[in-house]
Write a protein that binds this DNA or RNA. Structure first.
Length: 567
RNA sequence: UGUCCCGUGGUGUAACUGGCAACACGUCUGAUUUUGGUUCAGAAGAGUCUAGGUUCGAGCCCUAGCGGGACAACCA
């Protein structure tokens, strides 16, 4: 397991982190019979986001790295918040990211019977009791982090009475909140989670899997570690906020275990991304208040949103790999994510020409009805992608940004009197600028050099730039959606004094119509990806139809010119 | 006034368990280029939160501070 050498490039997980070191050590010491078994345990109460992707890659990746297994387990102990819709989306997202739980799909609810049995065992051992006090009293008695709690008057309730009461709780004899089952640990512990934590609460609610079988449901702490144990998990990886739960996790498991085997909880820091909000609650709010179009709005940091936006599974996996796993809480620059995205797309995206902000150009010396099919390379990074034909005609569109009537010195593109190359087609020279009554440029009259077909002049003449273009008569008209960061501030989650809704970027979505794309994209299907040359990476949105093509800009190309202009 | 965790260039990580801090992103040069993309070459930028200590030698070990975070849901 120590062959993490450079020739091990096939391995999905190339890097090593502190968790891998722990696993290696456990293996070396012969723990758990040399098994490595992890799990990804989402609660089905929302859609997965990029932060979950980090956990998924770690959980599945660690198992893969050590030849172990990883389960998918839905942590469905709170029927009031959970839903089948979320279960379905989570499974789709995990698969899409490239991971497979094979036949190991579990639900915490699969273990409700065993959990109940275990609770009864604890009661019999005098380690759990039924508390009749209302929530606010129990909360009050718990003390504060700096002040010890006081014991419940019901703490010394006899075993038989506890057993009978718990049975009645289970049978539905009591209304919600009437009483709870608590573990008897230590009300004076400096760790609040050990101050007689709740194990079960009464909740008359229909569960998405167990229906109405239960009206008591286990709390997270009374379910998670035990489920790990039942499934044979060896390394239970979770985020930092559960660190303080670990002693409780161990307490329950130690009371349950009948062998040397123990699942072990290890915590790592969650992912924070600049200009991004990762809280499930807030994401739900964005969806419910219609601030975005849905969980899969391309501006959302959800896996489904990113998928729709055009992210690839590999780009997300690579990003997670680059970010690493530690216990330090930081904030990763989205630029890192975008880099991983561009890196993958550059290698794989089909190139195509599209003009999203058109300016008409008439090639005055080009034959009226001629459709000149020129050869274009599909992907300069991948020769096997081949070439295609693109129609060049007398009237074409170029990008408005590619023309300036009165350009600054470093502007290489088209301006009156200059010659530029139309990619894969001809050199053209701008002779005349046509304006409307208000002085807006509406059309350019140019001439082309017939000898420059393909993009080179036989006399070896050079031009300073190459422009993309689309025939004004042979094209596909499309709607193009441009996206920008959803939030205007780097750390929207930490703007304590302002409502996060006020931090939303009003220009996060810009819809452009009358965009023209070369005809080759006509039969593209939702999710198909392209690079619109010189503009960025785009994919076909699910709103696409035969009547109207719809593209999303996944991410722009890096643009040094725009950067210079910005200064 | 508690317990636990964290503290390395702007950002994210690394440093073979003590040997004069490396990689990626970002930034800035320059070269190449039928994408102002890609690629390539190079540069700037930290002396590792602070102060002591151990040691021939400390980012790594010890002590004390400082700073940040988590914990008081019948949420997970």
């Amino acid at each position: 397991m120590s062959e993490n050498t450079s020739d091990n490039k096939k391995s999905v997980v190339k890097t090593r982190n502190f968790i891998h070191e722990i696993v290696e050590k456990d293996l070396l010491e012969g723990k758990n019979g040399g098994r490595v078994h992890t799990r990804f345990p989402p609660e089905p109460n929302g859609y997965l986001h990029i932060g979950h992707a980090k956990a998924i890659c770690l959980d599945f990746g660690t198992a893969q790295k050590f030849g172990g297994k990883c389960n998918l387990r839905f942590d469905d102990t709170n029927p009031s918040k959970e839903d089948q819709e979320y279960v379905d989306s989570i499974m789709e997202d995990v698969r899409w990211l490239g991971f497979d739980w094979e036949d190991r799909l579990y639900y915490a609810s699969d273990f409700f019977d065993k959990l109940h049995e275990f609770a009864v065992k604890l009661i019999k051992e005098g380690k759990a009791y039924v508390d009749d006090q209302p929530a606010d009293i129990i909360s009050q008695q718990r003390g504060t982090p700096t002040k010890p709690g006081v014991e419940s008057p019901y703490r010394k309730r006899p075993v038989d009475e506890n057993l009978a009461l718990f049975e009645r709780m289970k049978n539905g004899d009591f209304p919600n909140g009437h009483c709870v089952l608590r573990a008897k640990i230590d009300m004076a512990s400096p760790n609040m989670h050990l101050r007689d934590p709740l194990m079960y609460r009464i909740m008359h609610a229909e569960h998405h899997r167990t229906g109405n079988k239960w009206c008591i449901y286990p709390m997270y702490d009374f379910a998670h570690g035990q489920c790990d144990y039942f499934e044979g998990i060896t390394h239970s990886l979770c985020t930092l906020e559960f660190e303080i739960h670990r002693p409780l996790y161990s307490w329950f498991v130690d009371n349950l275990a009948d062998s040397d085997y123990r699942p072990r909880q290890i915590e790592f820091s969650r992912l924070n991304l600049t200009y991004t909000m990762m809280s499930k609650r807030k994401l739900l709010q964005l969806v419910e208040e219609g601030l975005v179009s849905g969980w899969d709005d391309p501006r959302m940091p959800t896996i489904s949103g990113m998928r729709r936006r055009g992210f690839t599974p590999a780009s997300i996996r690579n990003f997670v790999e680059k970010v690493g796993i530690t216990k330090t809480e930081g904030m990763v620059d989205v630029a890192m994510l975008e880099h991983a995205l561009r890196e993958d797309l550059n290698k794989n995206a089909q190139r195509v020409m599209g003009v999203i902000n058109p300016l008409k150009v008439i090639i005055t010396n080009f034959p009226e009805d001629k459709v000149d099919m020129v050869d274009a390379v599909n992907n300069p990074e991948d020769e096997s992608a081949g070439t295609r034909k693109v129609p060049f005609t007398r009237e074409i569109y170029i990008e408005r940004d590619d023309f300036m009537e009165d350009p600054p010195k470093k502007f290489f593109r088209l301006s009156p009197g200059t010659e530029v190359r139309m990619r894969y087609a001809y050199f053209i020279t701008c002779n005349n600028v046509v304006k409307d009554d208000e002085g807006n440029v509406i059309e350019l009259h140019c001439t082309y050099d017939p000898a420059s077909r393909g993009g080179n002049s036989p006399d070896g003449r050079k031009v300073k730039s190459t422009l993309h273009w689309v025939s004004a008569t042979e094209n596909v008209e499309a709607e193009v959606r441009l996206y920008d960061r959803l939030f205007m501030v780097e750390d929207p989650a930490n703007q304590k004094d302002s409502d996060f809704r006020q931090l939303l970027n009003p220009e996060s979505l810009l819809v452009l119509n009358k965009c023209f794309i070369e005809p080759s994209v006509k039969n593209a299907k939702p999710l198909d990806q392209f690079q619109f040359e010189r503009l960025g990476y785009f994919n076909v949105d699910k709103d696409n139809s035969d009547e109207k093509m719809v593209f999303n800009r996944t991410v722009s190309l890096r643009d040094n010119w725009a950067k210079q202009m910005g200064k």
